[in-house]
């Protein structure tokens, strides 16, 4: 017979309770009130016992919906001595050492997941996505853009021919082969000087970019950059990254509460911006390679970037930006010039 454990007994299915004590006799748990009247007499294996958690009271629930609870968690464990086996999470949760280990492990795991896991999964998904899907996606995006920001191109014929010739040179170095890329010229005052790639190989250049182009290598560089986006399925990767980041945050923060949701917004945005900069970097590297293979100098791409930057932000250039989808222009330009000297 074990020591008696003090607590409270709740009558089946009611809020009514009395002060009580529990005693284990072999495999039987007996609960009695202070005068010794037996309230419950049950085989221990039929009792549902709440796992230990912090300094929380323990609850013994009987099959008739009566229950005994005690603040004395150690004594409750003694009652169960040898009856319930298994490692309890409480052993880890009670120790500051394990907490410290957990902090380090969680930080390392999250870092690895953000840096390698999500981009890796997104890349894999993008590669597994059928081309027909990319085609539908591109058609819909183009239709939306044509309805909203894009207008027919107003570029004069000689310019148009030259642009198309330069595009053909860049496209010849694309991984899919020259015939799989298509250039569309559009006017877009709201987008400004710009070029963009759709996953099916369609590349849109705005009229507004053309006046900024001073050398052939600059235009080839822009096209090669957009072709790299197509070759690596960057827009699909971005779609998958955007879906994975909030899902990952939801899983890791565990209990989804208002506080954690709000606090997760900013990190989520920063992580996605960082992914986008990574993809842009890759497109720049590929473009520099194409320009060099065509006998040109990637440094010209840097010139164009700086010209656009000056147009956007004035002589001083655009300031550093954590939320930017592209790396900072100075860094991109330096990187491209470096590629030019190799």
């Amino acid at each position: 017979m074990s020591e008696a454990v003090a607590g409270r007994y709740f009558f089946p299915g009611t809020t009514r309770f009395v002060a009580a004590r529990a005693v284990a006799e072999g495999d039987i748990l007996r609960v009695e009130d202070e005068s010794g009247t037996v309230l419950a007499h049950v085989a221990l294996e039929l009792v549902e016992i709440s796992p230990r958690l912090g300094t929380l009271r323990r609850r013994f629930t009987f099959m008739d919906a009566g229950c005994f609870e005690t603040e004395d968690s150690d004594a409750a464990d003694c009652l169960l001595m040898g009856k319930r086996k298994g490692v309890s999470a409480h052993h880890l949760e009670r120790s500051w050492q394990w907490a410290a280990v957990s902090v380090l492990f969680a930080a390392a795991a999250m870092f690895a997941f953000v840096v390698y896991g999500i981009p890796g999964i997104a890349l894999w998904l993008a590669q597994e996505t059928p081309p027909s899907f990319a085609a539908t996606l591109s058609e819909q995006t183009l239709a939306t853009l044509d309805k909203t920001v894009l207008k027919p191109s107003a570029l004069p014929s000689p310019d148009r021919l030259r642009v198309e010739a330069l595009f053909a040179r860049a496209a010849g170095h694309g991984r899919r082969g020259a015939g799989h890329y298509k250039l569309l010229l559009r006017s877009a005052a709201s987008l400004g000087p710009n070029a963009l790639a759709l996953p099916d190989g369609t590349i849109v250049m705005t009229d507004q970019l053309w006046p900024f182009v001073k050398a052939d290598d600059e235009a080839i560089g822009v096209f090669a950059h957009e072709i790299a986006h197509v070759d690596h399925a960057h827009s699909l990767q971005a779609v998958y990254q955007a879906a994975l980041v909030p899902a990952a945050i939801a899983v890791v923060t565990g209990d989804i509460s208002q506080i954690s949701q709000m606090a997760a917004i900013l990190p989520g945005v920063l992580i996605q911006a960082a992914y986008s900069r990574g993809l842009e970097q890759q497109a720049d590297d590929d473009a520099a390679m194409t320009v060099r293979q065509l006998g040109g100098n990637p440094a010209h791409m840097a010139d164009l970037l700086e010209r656009l930057d000056t147009k956007l932000c004035g002589k001083a250039g655009c300031p550093a930006n954590w939320l930017g989808t592209h790396p900072q222009t100075a860094a991109r330009a330096a990187h491209l010039r470096n590629a030019g000297t190799k």
Partner: peptide
């Protein structure tokens, strides 16, 4: 304005 080939979200 922001751009695709140029800078991202503006300062």
């Amino acid at each position: 304005s922001a751009g695709g080939f140029g800078a991202g979200v503006s300062f």
